Simulated scan of single mutants.
Amino acid sequence: MTSPSCSLTKAINGFQHHKSHYPFRHLLNKMKELLADLTSGDDARAEKAIIPLVELGKVAIGPLLELTRSQNEDTRWWAIRALSASPHTQTLDLIPLLNDSSSSVRAATALAIMNHPSEEATEALIKTLYDEDTLTANLASNALVKIGSHTTPSLLKVMEEANTNVRILAIRALAEIKDHRAIPVMMKCLNNEHESAVIQYWAVQGLDKLGLDMVYINP
């Protein structure tokens, strides 16, 4: 397994190709110090390094992305935590990390995408609704809500094809998105006496959020 120190060396080497308006040597030393804290294995030190790393701006993104390729799970998690906090992070760089072997890293990635919502993440997040880790799947649902109505067609397809647990996540997202295109599916759920009570609950919530105070159920 690659050690955090090896990953840190790669990250620093990549950083040296960046230019900055700060004196380069000072910036390089600061970056080394902060990345060392981030990968120290000490949660308090790592968390304290987040804001200063973000304040370094775009130049921190490359080294942090390099750390997401570390074989050390903790290093990958903290790199994603820092990327999540940075306004310079690109969603496209986060999407592949939803396939990480670690459920905690996948969950951190879904949370990071919540902070950087983009339509380009829709397909990957839909796939993540099926994740075996409940937290990761729930965070993927939340991220889809953040993206908004662009995700409605994909969520409606999930309602047609998926098992009950995944459909619960999908209809919860649809209820929060408040897209009128979901009304027929919500009505269908309420009219199905064999439907999951949880799914029916979210169908009612969704219709209420759309301003439909009275729901007509077929006899």
Rank of each mutant, 00 (worst) to 15 (best):
H18Y: 13
N138I: 05
V204P: 05
R76T: 08
K146D: 05
W77N: 09
H18L: 13
W77I: 08
H194I: 09
G41Q: 07
L207Q: 01
P23K: 05
A85D: 00
A82H: 08
A44T: 15
A143L: 01
S40M: 04
V166F: 05
H26V: 15
G14F: 09
G206E: 07
I177S: 10
S103A: 13
M159E: 10
P117W: 14
K19T: 15
I12H: 08
E119C: 11
R81Y: 07
I171Y: 12
V198T: 09
I50M: 05
I51E: 15
A112W: 09
D131P: 05
L27F: 00
V215W: 00
M114A: 13
P153R: 00
A36T: 15
K157V: 10
A182D: 09
L65F: 12
L98C: 06
E66H: 09
I199L: 05
A46P: 05
R76F: 00
L64P: 01
L174T: 08
E160V: 01
S103H: 08
L210A: 05
A140T: 05
A170W: 11
I80F: 05
L139A: 10
C189I: 13
L53D: 07
R181D: 12
A36G: 13
V198W: 00
N138T: 04
R69E: 14
Q205S: 14
A82E: 10
E47T: 08
E123C: 09
T109W: 08
W202M: 02
T122S: 11
A11C: 03
H194Y: 14
A175C: 00
L35S: 07
K209V: 01
Q71R: 13
K209I: 02
